[in-house]
Simulated assay, not measured.
Amino acid sequence: MRDDSASAGAPVGYLDPTVHPRQAGQRVIDVFVHMARDKDADAWHRRWRAGDLVGVNDPTPYGYGRAEAMGCRVRFSTSRRENPLETLLRLGLRALTGFDPVHAFRQRRALRAADVVWTHTESQFLAVAAVLPRRGGPKVIAQSVWLFDRWEGLHPLHRWLYTRLIRRLDVLTFLSPVNMAVAQAAFPEKACRFVPFGIPSERMLEVGPRRRARLTVVAPGNDRHRDWAILVEAASALPDARVTILSMTAPKRLARGRAGVRIKVAESNEELNGHLAGASVVCVPLKPNRHASGITVIQEAVLAGVPVVATRTGGLDAYFGPDEIRFVEAGDAGALREALAEIARDPSGAAARARRAQERMRRDHLGAQSYVARHVALSRELLGRA
Rank of each mutant, 00 (worst) to 15 (best):
A255I: 07
A341C: 08
S348E: 15
R242H: 08
R253K: 11
Q184C: 10
P156W: 14
A279Y: 05
L272V: 05
P156F: 12
L276C: 06
L15V: 15
A357F: 04
Q23S: 12
R2V: 00
M248R: 10
L154H: 03
A368R: 00
H158G: 03
L316Y: 14
T173M: 11
G25D: 06
G274K: 04
L93G: 03
T249R: 10
G257S: 09
H375M: 06
D240K: 07
I199L: 09
T244Q: 01
G274R: 10
T311D: 11
F187S: 06
R360Q: 13
A43N: 13
V306N: 01
A368S: 12
V297P: 00
A237F: 06
G384T: 08
A377Q: 13
V217L: 01
Y319R: 05
Q184A: 15
R134M: 14
A350K: 00
G367L: 03
V178L: 11
L383H: 09
R211C: 15
A344C: 07
G63N: 06
D58M: 05
E342G: 13
Y162C: 02
M1L: 15
H225I: 05
S370Q: 10
D323L: 07
R75N: 12
T78F: 08
A10E: 11
H20F: 11
A352M: 15
V140T: 01
R106A: 08
V232F: 03
N273G: 04
E381F: 15
V117T: 01
W160H: 06
A266W: 00
A357H: 02
R362I: 04
A335S: 13
S247K: 02
D346Y: 01
Q26N: 05
E342R: 14
R47N: 15
S144V: 11
